[in-house]
Amino acid sequence: MIKLFKVKEKQRELAENASGGAPVKKQSAGELRLHKDISELNLPKSCTISFPNGKDDLMNFEVVIRPDDGFYLGGTFLFSFQVSPIYPHEAPKVKSKTKVYHPNIDLEGNVCLNILREDWKPVLNINTVIYGLYHLFTEPNYEDPLNHDAAAVLRENPKMFESNVRRAMAGGYVGQTFFPRCM
């Protein structure tokens, strides 16, 4: 290919002063796949998505879940999504931005949802993840605890768990931990 390099080098010298329409940043395959995911979203009424950086940055977005059933009925829970350029080779990074009393979400916003980590597959999509989050609220489970205390209460005393959830959502203390109001 050396001849080609030589020709190109000569052309470049000639074109040095010509206006080169500099190519702009290219979209990664991950961005394109995400574009597809987003344009095919089909969310339940209880979930809304927003794009804080405007319509052209899909890689960072937020989802609000307002559970219409279960312990968390009436609450409003905000999640941030960060999507990698090699999506869907890698799962999106999801954090809870609302401090919540929940067996599968810790106080720092880490979420224990299998499809976000060990069970992520490239055939899954953003829709699946949002549904997964939604189900965490309608069916919290004490078998995959991130908040150990909340999980123990749910397992041993569902009534007390329910009242703890209500107290946390209304804004108040559960044990030593304060939860800001989120309803």
């Binding site: 702009v24 394109l32 987003i38 344009s39 095919e40 809304t48 319509k55």
Partner: peptide, 17 residues
């Protein structure tokens, strides 16, 4: 849904986009 150089020209969903 159509995208050009990172600009979303038209999106079928979600409603906000």
């Amino acid at each position: 849904s159509i995208t050009h150089r990172g600009k979303n020209l038209y999106m079928q969903a979600p409603p906000v986009l």
